[in-house]
Design a protein around this nucleic acid. Structure first.
Length: 475
RNA sequence: GUCCCCAUCGUCUAGCCAGGUCCAGGACACAGGCCUUUCACGCCUGCGACAGGGGUUCAAAUCCCCUUGGGGACGCCA
């Protein structure tokens, strides 16, 4: 197979946000095209005017961009390509491969139901097939599918798949309102855009023979198919909204890195030996449809979280600073000193699984007044440490250098003089400076905050201890 | 109901196509430990699976059949 002319596409319908199942399909198509030096097309399938929306289209484009899945052509909008579809339908009609059907939707529905009740497959009975009917208000156009024989294709993931043509019925290709149906539009577009590989979800396996029949009727070359297994929720049913976060943008907003999501998605269904993490370049190089599994999988959100934590740790500080700013603004910090942020980021890296975590961890650098966590306040900001904090503050105010080493040295001496262990003072000090019981190393925290702020916060904490005491005794 | 697809630890999976090197490997999660000023990171250890039954074979997680289980599709939605 020539790799020069490979064309893949991702055709979401803009009836909702881009979910992770769709994103994975897009990723596979993208990887395949990139690896083969082919073309990746984005097509918006918006023929259902009722359910399609501009907003959903924007959300999809935004998701794709955020993930970094760039397309070489498009986005094409099916709603603007009706001429193409009509030409294909007319051709089919002329060749006698399609015919008008005058059955009403109500009658069809009724027949479907009774077929189901009899335990038969609810398919069209073909009663208009040989009537030679013409166009008429309310008429649809159906494809004349073979009555016998079978349709077979070699799926790049699942292997050979065969359907008996008796299972298939004469599907509608043009609605009574003149618009093309999904199957026709997809095939027409894929022919028109020279798509060579259709990589899509498992749920389309049953659609494939129908679409192949359209290609055959049109005497067009049939593309290669690769049906990737579905993503299931923890209850093993098809992933949907009720399973919680499923939209790509939701993951962005929860502080995930696109690379982490991509990595998690690609490993759901595809593997490369024992390797778990891949750079984008590696993926492009190593991806292969042959190693995509056949079984549906449950999305493992915990693994994504772990992946995200690792990618955060490996990200350059400056990149994290940029990524963090929107999250900090979202927490109410408008003016952010990015130099200061740059100094905390390395401290926060090993402690943050998401950018949201990291923004939370960086709070102490930017808040005007420390908000004490209830538990830390109660446990560590107690009257018995007030004196010690005062002594410490006075000692710290004498320091001419305020970096990690100078602080450690000063503390060693201070602990020695007072006959205490670091443990004794570290936690109260941590709460005083950050409001939390968990933070980066205490010397690092002080160095980041700077001498003035440290002294100020200790003073505030001592005052706070006094306030608490007064409240208690006055009661 | 009919058709299509699928089946290895709780989850994602390696191994299967070319049977022996697999009393089944890795990762996440979980449990225990080490490190330690807190929380993490890191390191070590542990727990844990070939759905069941028949065949084929000297030998089956690997090949075949059946059963069971799961998913999907059966629209003038995509």
């Amino acid at each position: 197979m020539s790799t020069e002319h490979i064309v893949t596409r991702f055709p979401p319908s803009p009836t909702g946000y881009l979910h992770i199942g769709g994103a994975r399909t897009a990723l596979f198509n993208w990887l395949f095209a990139r690896q083969k030096g082919g073309k990746f097309i984005l097509r918006i399938e918006d023929t259902d005017e009722e359910r399609s929306s501009e907003q959903a289209t924007q959300a999809i484009l935004e998701s794709m961009s955020w993930l970094g899945l760039d397309w070489d052509e498009g986005p094409y909008f099916q709603s603007k390509r009706y001429d193409i579809y009509n030409a294909f339908i007319d051709r089919l009609l002329e060749r006698g491969q399609a015919y008008y059907c005058h059955c009403t939707p109500e009658a069809l529905e009724k027949r479907r139901k009774s077929a189901m009740e009899k335990g038969l497959k609810p398919k069209y009975d073909g009663r208009c097939r040989e009537l030679g009917l013409g166009p008429k208000a309310g008429a649809v156009v159906r494809l004349k599918t073979p009555l016998s024989g079978s349709t077979r294709f070699e799926d790049l993931v699942k292997g050979p798949i065969t359907f008996n043509n008796e299972e298939l019925d004469d599907l509608i290709i043009r609605r009574s309102n003149g618009s093309p149906t999904y199957h026709l539009a997809v095939v027409a577009d894929d022919i028109d855009l020279n798509v060579t590989h259709v990589i899509r979800g498992d749920d389309h396996v049953n659609n494939t023979p129908r679409q192949i029949l359209i290609y055959k009727a049109l005497a067009a070359p049939v593309p290669q198919y690769a049906h990737v297994p579905m993503i299931l929720g923890p209850d093993k049913t098809r992933l949907s909204k009720r399973h919680g976060a499923t939209s790509v943008l939701a993951y962005r907003d929860m502080g995930y890195l696109p690379h982490a999501l991509l990595n998690a998605l690609v490993r759901l269904g595809w593997s490369y030996g024992d390797q778990e993490r891949f750079s984008l370049d590696e993926l492009i190089q190593k991806f292969s449809l042959a190693h995509v599994g056949k079984a549906a999988g449950i999305f493992n959100a915990e693994k994504l979280l772990d992946l995200n934590a690792r990618y955060i740790r490996e990200s350059p500080d400056h990149a994290l600073v940029q990524n963090l700013i929107p999250f900090l603004k979202n927490s109410g910090f408008q003016e952010i000193d990015s130099r200061k942020l740059q100094t905390v980021v390395p401290l926060l890296k090993p402690r943050s699984k998401t950018l949201v975590d990291m923004a939370e961890g960086a709070r102490f650098c930017f808040e005007k007044e420390v908000q004490y966590e209830e538990k830390g306040d109660r446990k560590f900001l107690t009257p018995d440490v007030a004196d010690l904090l005062i002594k410490l503050r006075d000692r710290l105010s004498t320091l001419s250098k305020f970096d990690h080493d100078a602080l450690e040295e000063a503390f060693t001496a201070f602990l020695d003089e007072n006959g205490i262990k670091l443990k004794k003072i570290a936690q109260p000090l941590r709460v005083a400076l950050t409001g939390k019981t968990a933070s980066p190393g205490i010397f690092e925290v002080m160095a980041v905050l700077g001498q003035d702020t440290v002294i100020e916060r200790i003073t505030q904490a001592v005052a706070h201890i006094g306030d608490k005491n007064r409240d208690r005794s006055s009661r």
